[in-house]
């Protein structure tokens, strides 16, 4: 009926249903988003475990400590620093092959000796913030140790944390 009538016919898609759908998706992603990107380092390959307990979310006051042996030829490290090979060289000057280093978020990789100093500073800051003379703080230390780390190195880090006043210790594993 409208051929040649010159009347402008505006085609209006029904956007309401589309909007409904988009809102649904949006809600899903908002609910699922986790802004805390876990201070986990990607190059740590955790040991497998079947009987481990699920991670408790209530522990908000945590400090994740990643432990890993250093090796210049390690494919995981080469992959991680593929965009910045100079950095791997730099690390090679600081760490011996096979030496264990510690990664905590916001810090460069450090040796166990530097980690001790860093942890002492953390502990001092935490106790000062609480305004108490207490030695112990209620931060849970989460150890993420690479599966090839020697037991003595993991133990030395655990002991170091405990001696500093962090009594709640947990090790992370990969659930299989």
């Amino acid at each position: 009926m409208n051929s040649g009538s010159g009347e402008a016919h505006v085609v209006e898609p029904n956007l309401i249903s589309l909007l409904d759908l988009v809102m649904q998706l949006l809600m899903f992603f908002i609910m699922c988003v986790t802004f805390v990107t876990d201070q986990a380092a990607a190059e740590i390959s955790l040991p497998d475990s079947q009987a481990a307990a699920p991670i408790e979310d209530k522990d908000t006051n945590v400090q994740i400590v990643n432990i890993r042996p250093f090796n210049t030829n390690d494919p995981a490290l080469i992959a991680k620093y593929s965009g910045n090979p100079k950095y791997l060289e730099e690390m090679g000057k600081r760490f011996l092959p096979g030496q264990v280093y510690v990664i905590v978020s916001g810090q460069d990789p450090m040796s166990i000796g530097s980690f001790r100093n860093w942890l002492r500073d953390q502990h001092t800051r935490a106790t000062m913030a609480m305004g108490l003379e207490k030695k112990a703080v209620d931060t849970t230390i989460i150890i993420r140790a690479h599966r090839d780390t020697d037991y003595k190195d993991v133990y030395s880090v655990l002991e170091l944390c405990r001696n500093q006043g962090y009594n709640q210790l947990v090790v992370r594993v990969l659930k299989v």
Binding site: A40, L46, S49, A52, A53, P54, I55, E56, I142, L158, E159, R162, L169, V170, V171, R172, V173, L174, K175
Partner: peptide, 9 residues
């Protein structure tokens, strides 16, 4: 995928 094992020293 990650889980944890509580431990003491």
């Amino acid at each position: 995928l990650e889980a944890q094992i509580p431990l003491v020293l």
